[in-house]
Design a protein around this nucleic acid. Structure first.
Lengths: 219, 219
DNA sequence: TTACATACATATCAATCGGTATGTAAATAG
DNA sequence: CTATTTACATACCGATTGATATGTATGTAA
């Protein structure tokens, strides 16, 4: 016990800062996801993190600063999950379902809803909302790039704008599904609709390919 | 001017009640849709409605009561829009796009977001949230019924559970699309994805029919 | 016209919001 | 070991929250 106390008290300043900030961000994410933006107060965040509001405001002068830090952390987490996926192979129709599952694993995660709470919750505050949107646009581009590369290597004929459109559609549906988590739906419900989404994407890619092949034979 | 004053002051009690409650509900919807649940306070609602908080609490003892009244009103509005659509014919693939457009006209309306603000905003309060969910389940059943009848009369072979699943998928995508309104997307973005959704539904219905036709020839 | 109910306003409540001022403990530079 | 900075706690601020208490205006039934 004493040793542990001594150990804790011997953290460097940068370690202390990193840990406290991390704890605060995680607490904020948890509260945003479960209670929503409106009920995620600086006091509840501090309590959840096990620090005081003084500590919170020391690291994040305003609540908005903390919210933006949550977005930063979320972007990092998403990127890490994506890189794990990028290491895997991508071989045709069967793996479309894997892509859908993976997107759901990222954006269907309860914690990810924190990001939407911030987007929606800050929409009245023009200043913050603008920064949030910029943040998001950057993140979105990073996420889509690997998909575009994969579709290129897979079909070689589907245009980038078509592939981008399909990717957008996947994210839209997955976002809609994530809203359903606020209702009392069973897991099979989500499974069914992820499956339908994967079917559709496969169908869409296939028909785009055939269309282009047909045009080429004509020329 | 005097006549008008006299006219207004000569409303019956039931008229006064109906008008004031309506004004309050409309104000709440407007604020929920634009500012969100957290920033929709009883005082801002009263101010927006042009009455005092005393009047608000006279008609709706608690904020929750007013929120449930918003859901009631929303259900009525949706039902009215549906009946207008039900009067129109339903003739095959082309009109699938009409159905999608109509659903978007209902659920993509900025004001409808008020309903989601309530669903999401009250999710911590178990008591209210339960009533909200029950309210919603009832409303959903009403919305889906005409679709099921139409698919029946159109194909005659697609099962009800398949048709219901497709309808759910449409709503999921439309909900996801409605989230995009908080980003700065151009109208063409929405048009593209509504079009894709319609394509998919047509494809799905068609392939389900062929599947069933194939099974019948086998027997 | 009287008696009463209903509709609504004013004033105010305790609780809580985001944020600040100030004091103390812990780490680090000299 | 000392001086200084950094991390964090305690205490508190004005503003605002949902809600209530009480008074007044308006409609209605006898």
């Amino acid at each position: 016990m004493i040793m542990k106390k001594a150990q804790v008290s011997r953290r460097s300043q940068i370690e202390r800062t990193a840990e406290t900030q991390s704890v605060l961000i995680q607490a904020a994410v948890r509260l945003l996801a479960t209670a929503g933006y409106g009920k995620t107060t600086t006091q509840s965040i501090a309590k959840e993190a096990g620090v005081t509001t003084g500590a919170l405001h020391h690291h994040f002068p305003t609540k908005d600063d903390l919210m933006l830090a949550v977005l930063d952390q979320s972007a990092i987490t998403v990127e890490a999950k994506l890189e794990a996926e990028n290491a895997m192979p991508f071989t045709g129709k069967a793996s479309i379902r894997d892509v859908v599952d993976h997107l759901w694993q990222i954006y269907g995660q309860p914690d990810y809803w924190a990001v939407w709470e911030i987007i929606i919750g800050t929409r009245v505050d023009a200043g913050v909302h603008q920064r949030v949107l910029e943040h998001r646009a950057q993140s979105m581009a990073n996420v889509m790039l690997p998909w575009l590369k994969r579709v290129d290597s897979l079909t070689g004929s589907v245009t980038r704008s078509d592939a981008a459109e399909i990717f957008e559609f996947m994210l839209i549906t997955i976002r809609g599904l994530s809203l359903e988590r606020f209702m009392d739906k069973d897991p099979a419900y989500f499974e069914r609709h992820l499956s339908m989404l994967a079917d559709f994407v496969s169908f869409r890619l296939q028909s785009l390919e055939q269309q282009l092949a047909h045009q080429e034979t004509k020329l």
